[in-house]
């Protein structure tokens, strides 16, 4: 396999991972408002905004990068998903429209009146709906219920995604996003009392996420999906799960007084390990098809010259994107630590 094929596959996983970590925390910012009492909601909202405000647009670019890699580099995977997961993708898109515009509008509305409550409500609900359907899509890609030869509407376009496993993965994704955002906010707390509040919320969301993870395994068991075997059946999966668990213990222990950067790195590490544990068992298969053959990242790769050009475009793009993105994150972290207000 030529070198650029590895580059393209690596960037696909990188884009998915970064979207989960950055876009996910961004979704989580809305989700934790659902877990916040009325009187603390304003504080939470301000804190979340301080954490993501300047970079929230950039966080969502990773989804576009992942989609473009899929349709240029792996057209059959992209079109199979588009056809058989049409409905959850459509619902996810409605969530993306509602959430992106509500976030932007609540900040750029020149008049701050009752409309703010409308934007907030749309933002909070779409923050949960969007990652839920993203998770449903991810679960459906792994569940093996997609059937290109399905005879009727139900089995071709609904049963492909509507089953307990993908719903459980959807709920787990929502919980994970909330968890990531909660960990980020701990580092943003300005007073000890605020920190205590955010720590409590993080513990709550940790428990919810672990519970949702258990539900994913239970649903897989009920549906006859060998998830346990995928994760624990190989050394990489076992190691990844072990490290994720160990780092979760460390995070739980250090939550009260650990430095913000450590907590964030640990949370990001856990999400990375979860993705690795689930993705590794099938690699290079990506989309599991009922009755097979599965769609593999190696077999479904686009023609050689396209892969070459796509890989070059991604490498070239990184030369521009990564330093600029790093400087953007750096500048606003620096200003936050100096106590400069982050307002548009």
């Amino acid at each position: 396999m030529p070198f650029m094929s590895y580059v393209v596959i690596a960037y696909l996983f990188l884009a998915i991972l970064l979207y989960l970590l950055l876009g996910g925390a961004d979704f989580g910012g809305g989700i934790i408002e659902l877990f916040t009492s009325e009187k603390n909601r304003h504080l939470t909202r301000q804190t979340v905004y301080r954490a993501i405000g300047p970079v929230w647009e950039a966080n969502h670019m990773w989804l576009i990068i992942a989609v473009v890699i899929l349709f240029v580099g792996f057209p059959r995977i992209y079109t199979t998903m588009s056809v058989h997961l049409h409905i959850p993708l459509l619902l996810m898109l409605l969530g993306i429209i509602a959430r992106g515009t509500a976030f932007g509008f609540r900040h750029y509305d020149a008049v701050h009146d009752r409309m703010q409550a409308v934007y907030n409500r749309i933002f909070v609900y779409s923050s949960a709906v969007t990652p839920f359907f993203l998770g449903v899509v991810a679960g459906s890609v792994l569940a093996g219920r997609i059937d290109p030869g399905a005879p009727d509407f139900w089995s071709a376009y609904v049963a492909s995604w509507l089953h307990p496993f993908s719903v459980a993965v959807g709920l787990f994704t929502v919980a994970l996003c909330g968890y990531l955002a909660a960990v980020y906010t701990v580092g943003e707390a300005k007073t000890a009392a605020d920190r205590q509040r955010f720590v409590r919320k993080t513990r709550l969301l940790t428990a919810v996420t672990v519970g949702a993870g258990g539900a994913v395994f239970a649903a897989a068991y009920r549906e006859g999906i060998p998830l346990l075997h995928w994760v624990l059946g190989n050394a990489v999966g076992r190691t990844a799960l072990g490290l994720a668990t160990a780092s979760l213990g460390l995070l739980w222990y250090r939550l009260g007084r650990g430095p913000a950067a450590l907590l964030r790195v640990l949370a990001g590490f856990q999400a990375t390990m979860i993705l690795l544990a689930i993705g590794y068992a099938h690699f290079p298969d990506f989309l599991l098809v009922r009755g097979g053959p599965n769609l593999s990242l190696v077999r479904e790769l686009a023609p050689a010259r396209t892969v070459q050009a796509l890989g070059e475009a991604l490498l070239l793009g990184s030369l521009f994107i990564l330093p600029a993105l790093f400087y953007l994150y750096y500048s606003f972290e620096r200003d936050k630590s100096r106590g400069v207000s982050v307002d548009g």
Binding site: P54, I64, I69, V72, P75, T306, A313, L328, S331, G344
Partner: peptide, 27 residues
């Protein structure tokens, strides 16, 4: 997709730069 996708993969970069630059500019 694989034939006319090249401008889209470059556009991804351009759009990303635009979002980053807008972040710098607005704040």
């Amino acid at each position: 997709g694989p034939i006319f996708g090249m401008p889209f993969s470059l556009e991804g970069t351009a759009f990303f730069i635009e979002a980053i630059a807008l972040g710098f500019f607005l704040y």
